[in-house]
Nucleic acid binder design. Structure first.
Lengths: 136, 136
DNA sequence: ATCAAACTTGTAATGATTACAACATAATAA
DNA sequence: TTATTATGTTGTAATCATTACAAGTTTGAT
């Protein structure tokens, strides 16, 4: 059974053509795409694809923990197929997004705080990338 | 000169009735309100207030570092008048937002990573608050 | 008081996301 | 297989937070 299908099954998501295509896209493209980018790229291979399906599927995959929805971009949601703990950086000028590895010393990824249960941790850095330094 | 006006001046923002009212609101209400909540509350005291002004002002204050715009809520932007370093928690059931103090050991608030300049750090926790534990 | 710059306001777009109802596909039972 | 039901997909039409824009108002300098 292939890697993508297995990932879906492992997270309790019944595989379908569309779900596998979207999951595969996110596993192969580490670009933190928007729903629109995913739709536009997959539309070429799957011309019957609907944008609603992309949104529905991304929500489903997020709920099942198979995908991370990232809120670093105030305009649109970004999606990440890499579930390993890491932070994100976004350039306020060009909008590029990078993964940032976590320092071992940081005790950021925890199970709870007081009486709060935590099941998502988001660490976002915003600033200027190498190319955009001088422009601002 | 009063605390609110001083805060604006310190951040290079020329004070006006509206700007002071919004800044004062955020300094007194640590509720991480939306633009709409701010508008609705201030509209009572300032009936001529426009929602556009609230949005304009919040953007201006954020750009000048007098206010933090928080992206923890995927529906609307939240605003915080407390500029000291701290994290945020949001309950996925009831939507309540709490401030979370940072562990001293965490080296989260840094000036740069490699060739990236950082000027905003956002640490968000999502999960379930005390009251919403059992419901999910 | 005059004039220009800076602020504020209301209305009209914009645009990402969701609701919904029809259609299609997959799973199950007989 | 066929009938039946549940689940998944699609397209169109809302929704609704935020922004664009143009007109009106206030402020500050001369």
């Amino acid at each position: 059974m292939d890697r993508v299908k297995q990932h879906l099954v492992d997270h309790g998501v019944k595989p379908s053509i569309q779900r596998m295509a979207i999951m595969k896209y996110l596993m192969e493209n580490r670009t933190h795409p928007t729903a629109d980018m995913i739709f536009n790229d997959l539309y070429i291979e799957i011309p019957t694809l609907s944008k609603t399906t992309v949104y529905n599927t991304l929500k489903l995959l997020t709920e099942h923990g198979a995908v991370k929805t990232i809120g670093i971009d105030e305009k649109n949601a970004r999606f990440d197929g890499d579930m390993s703990p890491h932070a994100h950086f976004r350039c306020k000028n060009c909008g590029c997004i990078y993964d940032i590895p976590l320092d071992q010393n940081d005790k950021i990824f925890i199970d709870g705080i007081g009486e709060l249960t935590i099941d998502e941790v988001h660490l976002y850095y915003k600033g200027f990338c190498k190319n955009c330094q001088q422009n601002n």
